[in-house]
Amino acid sequence: MTNTPKVALVDDDIIYRITTKKLIEHKQLANEVMFFSDGEEAIDFLRLKQNTPTDLPDIILLDINMPVMDGWDFLEEYILLKPKIGKSIMLYIVSSSVSKEDIIRSKKISAVTDYIVKPITDEDLATLFESI
């Protein structure tokens, strides 16, 4: 694995994105943080770069409630795309939802590594990046 991992933040909340980015950079956990404000933007990027693994993220932090294409719809498309991608990507759901249904639903999807309830702490982030 690369020593300078890339992380993709898929979330419509700009405050979350910038705050998380600042935290990651401060802890020097990754050297590149990509932003996508909804599922459609993210899936379009993954499709475009599926054959150039070096451009792809090592970790995706995915929100559930987003406009245009929400986290669940993104996952449906992502599962179809995953086998074609020449890279293993860790995907975490990071959501403000504490709904049991959302958590149970995410556990049933093998492409989802874990479910994290916002706000994500620096300890959470450190653990995520250790697992790469």
């Binding site: 909340d13 405050i15 979350y16 705050t19 935290l23 409630n65 403000s96 504490v98 709904s99 916002k118």
Partner: peptide
């Protein structure tokens, strides 16, 4: 569901912003 989401999101952000400043207390932050 939405009530929970809409109330939790900004509160989560406030917490995250405070965390950020605690862990990296620069004037910019």
């Amino acid at each position: 569901y939405i009530t929970s989401h809409n109330l939790r999101s900004p509160v989560g952000n406030i917490t995250a912003l405070l965390n950020l400043y605690k862990s990296d207390p620069t004037p910019e932050n």
